[in-house]
Write a protein that binds this DNA or RNA. Sequence first.
RNA 1: GCCCCCAUAGUCUAGCGGCCCAGGACGUCACCCUUUCAAGGUGAAGAUCGCGGGUUCGAAUCCCGCUGGGGGUACCA
Length: 494
Amino acid sequence: MIQPVRVRFAPSPTGFLHIGGVRTALFNWLFARHHGGQFLLRIEDTDEKRFVAGAADDLMESLRWVGLTWDEGPDIGGPHAPYVQSERHDQGIYRAYVDQLLAQGYAYQSFVSPEEQEQMKAEALSQGLKSFRFRGPERTWTPEQVAEAEAQGKPYTVRLKVPLTGTTVFHDLIRGGECISVENDELYDVVLLKSSGMPVYHLAHLVDDHLMGITHVIRGEEWVPSMPYHVLLYRAFGWEPPLFAHVPNMLRHNGQGKLSKRKDDVATNRFWERGYLPEAMFNYLALQGWSYDDHTEIMSVHELIERFTLDRVQSSPARWNPDKLKDMNGIYIRSLSVVDLARSIAPYLARAGLIGSPPQAEDLAYVEQLTFLIRERLEELSEAPDLLVFFFREVEYADPLLLVQKKMDIPTTVRALRLAHERLQPLETWDEASVEGVLRALVEELGLKAGQLFGTIRVAITGRTIAPPLFETLTVLGRKRSLARIVRAAQVLV
RNA sequence: GCCCCCAUAGUCUAGCGGCCCAGGACGUCACCCUUUCAAGGUGAAGAUCGCGGGUUCGAAUCCCGCUGGGGGUACCA
């Protein structure tokens, strides 16, 4: 029997989660769902210095927003709880395994301070060595020497006793299972336990992955260089290692390095306010480094789960492309029903103070009418308030000359507005067809082009030259407000 | 510097020896539709498949070198 797939996403709470991290989580999630396995979330907070309070909650919120749910995790627990490394550390989990390595001679206590290490490095380099690979002098110490140093209360770290010779090989699912090999003399004795007693990533993640029964480690390619240490550790523990898949990094838009929290606008928790639909984000991210075939791009979560396989993950890095995301967001917006889109847009209007917050039933009903007008014009939901303000606020006519169309002047424009008012006012029914009928007749009468008259009225009604279709707009705005604006526009010009 | 990974249009990608003098998408441009803007439709420009060597009857696809890009080189993850 093949054991069920178990994968994990293990971020460290050092700030907001950026979309590159979400992409890695997404691949793990899709892989787990595809195989009917489990996806777990584990918080790796072994770096006391970079810890940011609240980051773990923020990060979980980001994952939930995109639709990634976990089967075991810090908030919901699970058979291997706790899922927070600092808590596991408090239980003495890591120390026990370090002691095992120590006892078996795979690791050693090192009393070299960071400063002394720096010195050793500087010395080695000054002697013409091309590079410095730290090897602690304690490697050859007798138990008595170690005991003595310890008795003096000297702080120490525990380091992995990396073989001096030989080669360490490993393979990677994404690089076609090709063997990657590294000479052991390129390695150094990595720290496993800091002098504070806290484990370092290399040790902690590996112990947890083993204990939690992780079958596949899908993580960023920045981990490839440390694979030899992990291989050595699995060997030292005598554990069967999981399968590894290092997914390519996401590069910055300009290709200058990998996506950066500091330099790029990629905080996952900000995409809602920027007007993005989680479905669009999900779909876009799935395509960053993975593809289904030569033409399919829009795929539902269900389809993605069905189709996602690791062998179709690219081995070369992808670049963050905001334009593509935006386009995809537009596609998802247009695919929403008017009711659903109205519901999605309402919070943005409420935020802008255009409707009640939270939106009331009557607000929503009105928004549904408006939604119809901008459905095809939205790429980001956050654009809605701006596109619709004139339905909620009086127009300002900051630049009255916008009313005057090509080949027209102020007098002809004023006349057109007055006549439009005169003809529209007596209309019995105020609907699209009637309004259009009247205005088209007026175009004829005035000997204008449709674009000229309609352009003038558009500016009169909306205050701008770019707006939703005119007759629909007039209909939704209503007779009273429409006529009032036409009158005001004419007044502004004289 | 040293080590590792990667390399198809501006970008994301299809391609895993002949179906490709390279397919799809974003972006760009043009035209159609049209009351503006979009959406939609049609079409165009854009890739000597990074460069140079091999292997092969045949290479974007395999091998080697170079170049370029990315990553790592922490008591950070």
